[in-house]
Structures are given as structure tokens and as C-alpha cells.
């Protein structure tokens, strides 16, 4: 899978590149409108991570040109300008998703994965880790072909952790993903722990070869046994 990051802010660009390289993607970068235009003229990408405010032009006009040319590269707008207008404009112009800065790694990873999954051929709606497989269409979890009964939030948690397997998932990112962006300001995310506890029990009871580890104070990590 080949990705292009169009981002003028060096720190941001490096972070994203590093993260996505760890996920074994081929990652290229462009720092402004013109270099992005050049790269896009030569190569096709599976997913383009596009900033809106760029030197030399806006990400939106770049998107417009891509769509005019009939390109099918998935586009994820990653922008600091999370005003609704930009979001609506971006999605109307044919962007596939929109992620506002600042974001957590886990969220970016999940968004990219979901875009690529949507784009790829059939069969990729199943996420498999060891003897655990998650069907993202039916929203079901199977361990060794046996279905595990999950409620809506448990499903959302395990999906997020499976997508970000072996990565540290920040508890805020997890809460925002499962309970919505607006979950902010709750006095603590301790309530997530009881959900995780239920999940762990279900995974253990069905002899799943994955486990959810708590990483001191920061969040959780799903690892293979």
C-alpha cells in the first residue's frame, strides 16, 4: 500500500510518516502544493493524507483537480482548520474522510486502515489476528470460528484495538472513538476499564490468542500471545 502525506509542517509530517512506516506502508511526502502536484502527476497512491493550508495553494484545490482528472486515490483530509465549512467543502469535493488536528496516532491509523479497507478488494472486511477474526460488515467477532457475543461498545473497542494491534492506544483516543468526539471533559476515563475487563474475560474464556494489556496511565495495547 502506497501513501502520500501532503503536509507543510515538518514535525507533523515526520510524525505521520514514522507512524505509517511502522504499519508497513510505503510512505512518500510532499511539503507544498507544487511538489504534491508533481508527485501526483507521476504516481498513483492508495491513500492521500491532505492538509488544507499549504504553501502555493490549498489542499481543497488539489482535491478538486484530482477529482476532475477522475482519480480514485482515497483522500483523507488532515487539517487544523476543523471549521465545519472546510469539513463540508472537503467532503463535498469528494474527500473520503476528514480528521481534525490534533489527533492521536491510533485514530489516524484507524482512519487510514478503514479507507484502505473500503478501497481494497473483497474479503478485506475481515480483520484477522491469530485465531481472532473481526467482520467489520456484520460487526461480529469470532475466535476459532466461534462467535463471541459483544455489545455495541465492546465491539467498537475491540475493533479499534485490533486495527491498532501492537500499538499503544491512548485512552482518550479510545474514548473518543467509542463514545464520540464529545466525550471530552469527563472527570476520568476509568469507566473504560470496566469495559476492558469484560472484554478480557470474554477473550480469555474463548481461548483467544490475543490479550489486552494496560499501559501504565496512558492506555491499552492489544498483543498477540
Amino acid at each position: 500500500m502506497k501513501l502520500l502525506i501532503v503536509e507543510d509542517e515538518a514535525g507533523m509530517r515526520e510524525n505521520m510518516q514514522q507512524l505509517l512506516l511502522q504499519e508497513n506502508y510505503i510512505v512518500e511526502t510532499a511539503t507544498d502544493y507544487h511538489s504534491a502536484r508533481e508527485k501526483l502527476g507521476v504516481y498513483n497512491y492508495d491513500c492521500i493524507l491532505l492538509d488544507i493550508g499549504l504553501p502555493g495553494g490549498t489542499g481543497l484545490s488539489l482535491l478538486q483537480e484530482l477529482k476532475k482528472e477522475g482519480r480514485t486515490d482515497a483522500v483523507l483530509i488532515v487539517s487544523a482548520k476543523d471549521s465545519i465549512d472546510d469539513k463540508v467543502a472537503g467532503l463535498n469535493l469528494g474527500a473520503d474522510d476528514y480528521l481534525a488536528k490534533p489527533f492521536h496516532f491510533a485514530e489516524l491509523n484507524a482512519r487510514v486502515r478503514s479507507l484502505l479497507r473500503r478501497k481494497a478488494a473483497q474479503g478485506s472486511d475481515i480483520i484477522t489476528v491469530q485465531n481472532v477474526s473481526l467482520n467489520t460488515i456484520n460487526r461480529t467477532l469470532q475466535v476459532d470460528d466461534r462467535e463471541i457475543d459483544l455489545n455495541r461498545k465492546e465491539y467498537n473497542i475491540i475493533e479499534y484495538l485490533l486495527i491498532n494491534k501492537n500499538r499503544l492506544v491512548n485512552k482518550t483516543a479510545l474514548a473518543e472513538h467509542v463514545w464520540g468526539d464529545n466525550i471530552d471533559e469527563v472527570s476520568s476515563f476509568d469507566f473504560i476499564y470496566s469495559q476492558i475487563k469484560n472484554l478480557r474475560k470474554k477473550l480469555k474464556d474463548s481461548n483467544a490468542l490475543v490479550e489486552i494489556k494496560a499501559v501504565y496511565g496512558i492506555g491499552y495495547k492489544l498483543t498477540e500471545l
Binding site: A100, L168, I218
Partner: peptide, 28 residues
């Protein structure tokens, strides 16, 4: 937003390093 994002991601990256002590994780 951008510097915030960079800082958060850098720290997340740091937190993913192996062999961090609980004390270091608590600070992070």
C-alpha cells in the same frame, strides 16, 4: 492545533518505546 498535534504524537511515539519504567510512563 498543529503544535499540539505534533507534541501529542511525539509523546505517543515515545510511550511506544520498549522498556520504559512505570515512573517514566506516569510522567508521559
Amino acid at each position: 492545533q498543529t503544535p499540539l498535534g505534533i507534541a501529542i504524537n511525539k509523546l505517543e511515539h515515545l510511550a511506544e518505546q520498549e522498556h520504559l519504567s512505570d515512573q517514566q510512563l506516569a510522567l508521559l
